[in-house]
Design a protein around this nucleic acid. Structure first.
Lengths: 137, 137
DNA sequence: GGCAATCGGAACGAATCAGTCCGATTAGCT
DNA sequence: AGCTAATCGGACTGATTCGTTCCGATTGCC
């Protein structure tokens, strides 16, 4: 019940990116330096964040990334889903996934989708704008 | 951001146990049969649940387990923590864990403990009594 | 047209997870 | 009281996923 190191790194990197302002040009090297995330790992992460639609990527010399949405419009849930995949407590909570051997008599399954939604809601209530600021209220 | 198979199994087994009523004597074999969880795995799980204080164990012939608390007093968070360990989004959210290389300049850390609390709250709001019943409202 | 810089995907090693097996403990029967 | 049978408890093995690293593909600049 904790997120992976990659997701953790991604959150830190996105927060660093948000502090550069909305339209700033960024690259993986810059973010790695600022956050302390190893460069190859940072490259992998920005790639995932870009393919999830959170960052716009430009290749070649002078390329890089920039945020596609305002920091207040990006939530913690968005970042985690971009790196880890859908937020679902159990496999059976995802639609079109029915490979659970217990599914036949499972009395718990009807509740799991609601639970997943609640957890996702808790994560979606935290915006990147909040995370990029220093101390909480 | 999803729980492990073991935690999933543990929830299903605890729900099955709750349906047997408060003081019923149970054993790993019985729960494995009812839920479909493989017996050796079920044994491992009831052991962890017992050492976490959710079940009382009795060894020897005629031994077994029983719930230590009412189903309404046991939450999903309790079960998950018994199997997976503390619910904390990041390592730095746990007190006395300071082995994060990013901690030096981490602007996100101050928020993580609040986020972990919110997720835990979402899981703690679901009681075993609810899970042991069939359909949600 | 060549060069340098940056993204993108593929491959490797490590850690954790899921599952299995065997020993320790205790009640019940003879 | 001793033995047997049944059950919990911890140790071991294989598999999957995670985390990291490296190399190739693409594009702007000189």
């Amino acid at each position: 019940m904790k997120l992976t190191s990659l997701a953790d790194y991604a959150v830190v990197m996105m927060a660093a990116a948000a502090r550069h302002g909305p339209g700033a040009r960024l690259n993986a090297t810059m973010l790695a330096d600022e956050t302390g995330v190893p460069l190859p790992t940072a490259q992998k992460l920005v790639g995932r964040l870009a393919s999830a639609g959170l960052l716009a990527s430009a290749r070649g010399a002078g390329g890089g990334f920039q945020l596609l949405k305002a920091a207040s419009e990006i939530t913690l849930a968005d970042i985690i889903e971009a790196v880890e995949g859908p937020i679902a407590m159990t496999a059976c909570a995802e639609t079109a996934r029915h490979d659970c051997a217990l599914e036949r008599n499972c009395q718990v399954k009807p509740h799991m989708s609601a639970v997943s939604g609640a957890v996702r809601g808790a994560l979606a209530s935290v915006s990147l704008a909040t995370l990029s600021q220093g101390e909480p209220a």
